[in-house]
């Protein structure tokens, strides 16, 4: 815990409960700059809730969250986003009635003011960046297509590209490969490995094959607490982790 002072993100004794149900209790988590951290755990362990707490979607009932040395748990969602935290949701959420290009332009949120954006029209300097990102996620041919017409996997990628357009220091990914085909998952793993070092990533994932492909350090959550932390081999041989996954067929089959 003494490393928390120089971590980019630090959760200290964070708790939250919804009407008596304790979703996260006394969670301590520290993530360093540029790290790719996988967050795993059985269903209901509080992984998504942990991400919600970091990005401000849910308010902490106790404890403290610090980002780059600054407490952020009392900031509004958009202030947390401006501080440099991006969030990809579990259910892919993009702007279905807008084109892929327009989606990406909205992702480029360096200017957030109403009046500043009133005098900004399409075709500005952002265009190169938008096209680069579209290429990165294989959506170059779909730039003028309404996002509603994308396949599920493409929608997931579009949302990932939106987060990259926002260019936050810390990216929170909630099950980025959910609903993807094997090949799509593989491509996503490649993409994440490329992002390593440029952004800090926290990835919640159930697909252990995917975790194996990208993981450096894995944090295992169980019943709202941090259960274990280490490499994949370390955590999968951990007795407590094995017990936590008991009945769900073990860590590899979750």
């Amino acid at each position: 815990m003494n490393s928390e002072s120089n971590s980019q993100l630090a959760l200290c004794d964070v708790s939250v409960s919804f009407g008596g149900f304790v979703a996260v209790s006394g969670l301590d988590l520290a993530v360093d700059r540029g790290e790719l951290r996988c967050l795993i755990g059985p269903n209901g362990a509080g992984k998504t809730t942990a991400l919600d707490l970091i990005c401000g979607k849910t308010r902490v009932s106790g404890g403290e969250i610090r980002f780059e040395g600054r407490p952020i748990h009392e900031l509004k969602e958009y202030e947390i986003a401006r501080a440099g935290i991006g969030r990809k949701f579990q259910v892919p959420s993009v702007f279905r009635e807008l084109t892929v290009r327009e989606n990406l332009q909205i992702g480029r949120s360096h200017h957030t003011g109403v009046f500043a954006n009133l005098v900004r029209f399409g075709g500005s300097t952002d265009d190169n960046e938008v096209e680069r990102l579209a290429e990165l996620v294989g959506l170059s041919d779909a730039l003028e297509m309404a996002a509603a017409h994308l396949s599920h996997g493409q929608t997931q990628w579009l949302e990932i590209a939106l987060i990259l357009a926002q260019d936050p220091a810390l990216i929170l990914m909630d099950e980025p490969t959910a609903g993807m085909t094997g090949q799509e998952t593989h491509k996503t793993a490649e993409l994440f490995n490329r992002l390593r070092g440029q952004h800090t990533l926290i990835v919640v994932e159930h697909d252990m094959g995917f975790v194996r492909d990208i993981a450096e350090t894995i944090s295992v959550m169980h019943q709202g607490k941090l259960l274990a932390e280490g490499t994949l081999d370390e955590v999968s041989s951990d007795q407590r982790v094995r017990e936590a996954y008991l009945g769900s067929g073990g860590i590899g089959h979750a």
């Binding site: 990005c55 993009v94 702007f95 807008l98």
Partner: peptide, 14 residues
């Protein structure tokens, strides 16, 4: 228009 489609998504872009 993005707010009309997905208000929360817009918020988390800042």
């Amino acid at each position: 228009q993005a707010i009309r489609d997905q208000e929360d998504r817009v918020r988390f872009f800042g």
